[in-house]
Design a protein around this nucleic acid. Structure first.
Length: 624
DNA sequence: GCCAACGTTGGC
DNA sequence: GCCAACGTTGGC
């Protein structure tokens, strides 16, 4: 079955249908059917289609999977007609040209002619959701209509080029997973033993897996993003011309990256460079490290037999990796499961709050299903902690679960805009502590569902709990914001001076190097108080000195749900402030820049604190 | 750097 | 069949 968009005359002019086969995972081979309305809206199910079209449209006879009208014999019609039911839309539908499904008496066999004839638009007066604006495709140059009111990816490309680009990206992902099977690299069966991946002495089962191959065995058909869009004429050219000055250069034996024929160079990149007058940095060498086998054995969900074998492997082959490098996680086949510890308060929560932004986005709460994220109050705390705080929130073994915060290319400062808005959605909602604050002895709860950072760190965690006077927009209850700051060690008082800050809590004082305290930045996102947690909070409000026990016991949902509601993958862009000693490890760099309080005139953080970011830019998504 | 958008997959 | 939501990526 074709996976491109095809006309669906059964729904009327302009409607498209697409069937997509799942290419991996437990449901590999299954197909999903999607529809696209004349205005570009995507519909994923019959329910959504019914909602979209409104109650005036009867879809009873519409075969969503096949995109045609069902044929009903007279007997079936007679039986079905009296008790005809129609799904009631769960929410109001925006004005759309509404195709009319014919009455049962008009239903005929599934012939395109009949469908086209019977499917007509009656609500022709309804205005389209948005007006298209003319434009030219960046790739092929043809004029095309673009919906300027919608935020859309690849909007500079026409429909065809955009589809090709998406298909290319999909192909590239597949090449990264399994390779093309044709290129010389895919034909290599033995590891070289000398590349950085091989030198890391990964377990064979893992090293030969999908993401951590020997460098000499990585599919050559993977087009690095930094070198081409994959869509333009240059990228599509497969053969060197053999005549240009580059082709005439001598080859570079032993190097994977060879000279690229002028005819095969990305035109889009060229235009991009000309526009911006600077060249983007080059991708650094991929680097991935497997977690220790002991942690592998605890992973859920992996179905790959090789991975399973690695899980069963006894811990007799310890990896001699640098400590922080061990924090880099190998992406697993079933990474979707890795976001849940299953035991923290958030994971145990069964109901959506119905009020956070992600809940409001859900169709069941009347949303448009664009964000498609789990309720903020249900996002795993362990996952957040481990990925944000590699070196402090877990022991050496747990550290292996962490993903490296990879950096993307930054735009020039002049090109960035200050973001103003009602919310701050930043991993840096985690702050370091300030001196002179009330001390709460932190303890390591190894068996707890919520692991606290060990003593000796300067990290402070925001968490739900007692009231907090964080001045954030929202309902009146915001004065009882579910924020609480935990801290451990205190720096020397002399290292700090007070300054203006937005976030003021009983323990996080002005001047703290917290992004939340940057008066320029948006303020801390204030989620509505969760009714279930309210009860626990009210019980514990008066006992601030027992905050640690509350946290360890999972009485409340820490505000790190805010951190993680961003989605785990975004932490590759993240840098965190950590004690300087945490930086004394290879593979990490630190920068004195990035102090978020600088723009607000706040004093710099103490010398013992530095900003941590990962030097390794590789991540699975960096190549497409 | 951040995040909205959305393709995709898991699971009921 | 449908929904939930994970993971990626283009836009800002």
């Amino acid at each position: 079955m074709a996976e491109e968009w095809l006309d669906c005359p059964a729904l009327g002019p302009g409607w498209k249908r697409r069937e997509v086969f799942r290419k991996s995972g437990a449901t590999c081979g299954r197909s999903d059917t999607y529809y696209q309305s004349p205005t570009g809206d995507r519909i994923r199910s019959k329910v959504e289609l019914t909602r979209y079209l409104g109650p005036a449209c009867d879809l009873t006879l519409f075969d969503f999977k096949r995109g045609v009208l069902r044929y009903l014999n007279p007997k079936a019609q007679a039986l079905a007609a009296p008790g005809r039911k129609r799904k009631k839309p769960a929410r109001p539908v925006k004005a759309q040209p509404c195709p009319v499904v014919p009455d049962r008496a008009e239903a005929t066999k599934e012939t395109p002619r009949d469908e086209t004839k019977t499917m007509t638009h009656t609500d022709t007066d309804a205005a389209p959701a948005s007006l298209p604006a003319p434009g030219c495709c960046e790739n092929c140059g043809i004029r095309f209509s673009v919906d300027v009111t919608r935020r859309q990816r690849l909007k500079t490309l026409c429909k065809d080029c955009r589809a090709r680009r998406i298909a290319f990206n999909r192909e590239q992902r597949m090449f990264k997973r399994v390779g093309c099977g044709e290129c010389t690299a895919c034909q290599v069966t033995e590891d070289c033993g000398t590349c950085s991946t091989c030198l890391l002495q990964l377990p064979h089962e893992v090293a030969s897996g999908l993401f951590c191959k020997c460098e000499q065995r990585r599919c050559l058909r993977i087009v690095e993003k930094s070198r081409g869009c994959g869509v333009c004429r240059g990228c599509q050219t497969r053969e060197d011309c053999g005549r240009c000055q580059v082709c005439l250069r001598p080859p570079r034996p032993g190097l994977r990256r060879q000279w690229r024929c002028v005819q095969r160079r990305c035109l889009r990149h060229l235009a991009h460079r000309l526009r911006r007058h600077h060249q983007r940095g080059q991708r650094r060498a991929p680097l991935a490290v497997a977690p220790p086998a002991g942690k592998l054995a605890r992973r859920k969900g992996g179905r790959d037999p090789k991975i399973a074998a690695a899980r069963r492997r006894p811990q007799t082959q310890p990896l001699s990796l640098p400590p922080l490098l061990q924090a880099i996680e190998l992406p697993y086949t079933n990474r979707r499961q890795n976001r849940k510890c299953g035991s923290c308060t958030a994971c145990l929560r069964r109901t959506d709050c119905g009020r956070c932004d992600f809940c409001c986005d859900k169709p069941k709460f009347g949303g448009s299903n664009q964000k498609r994220q789990k309720c903020r109050w249900r996002q795993c705390l362990q996952f957040a902690m481990k990925r944000l705080l590699p070196s402090v929130c877990a022991g050496p073994e747990d550290g292996a679960e962490l993903l490296p915060p990879c950096r993307r290319h930054r735009k020039p400062v002049s090109a960035r805009r200050p973001r103003l808005g009602p919310t701050l959605k930043s991993p840096l909602a985690m702050s370091i502590s300030c001196p002179g604050q009330a001390q709460a002895p932190m303890k390591q709860e190894a068996g707890s569902s919520f692991v606290l950072p060990p003593p000796g760190t300067d990290l402070v965690f925001l968490r739900e709990g007692a009231g907090s006077p964080v001045p954030v927009p929202g309902p009146a209850s915001s004065t009882e914001a579910p924020l609480q700051v935990k801290q451990e060690k205190v720096d020397a008082q002399d290292d700090w001076t007070s300054g203006p800050a937005v976030l003021i809590s009983p323990v996080l004082r002005p001047g703290c190097p917290s992004k939340t305290g940057d008066p320029i930045l948006p303020r801390v996102k204030q989620e509505p108080r969760d009714p279930e947690e309210d009860r626990a909070v009210s019980r514990n409000d008066s006992a601030s000195d027992s905050a640690v026990e509350e946290e360890a016991g999972g009485a409340g949902t820490p505000v790190i749900t805010e951190i993680f509601s961003l989605g785990g993958s975004r932490f590759r862009d993240t840098a965190v402030w950590l004690p300087r000693q945490e930086m004394e490890a290879p593979g990490w760099s630190w920068s004195p820049r990035g102090w978020p309080g600088a723009r607000g005139g706040l004093p710099p953080p103490p010398a013992s604190m530095i900003r941590l970011s990962c030097r390794n830019s590789w991540c699975p998504s960096s190549q497409t």
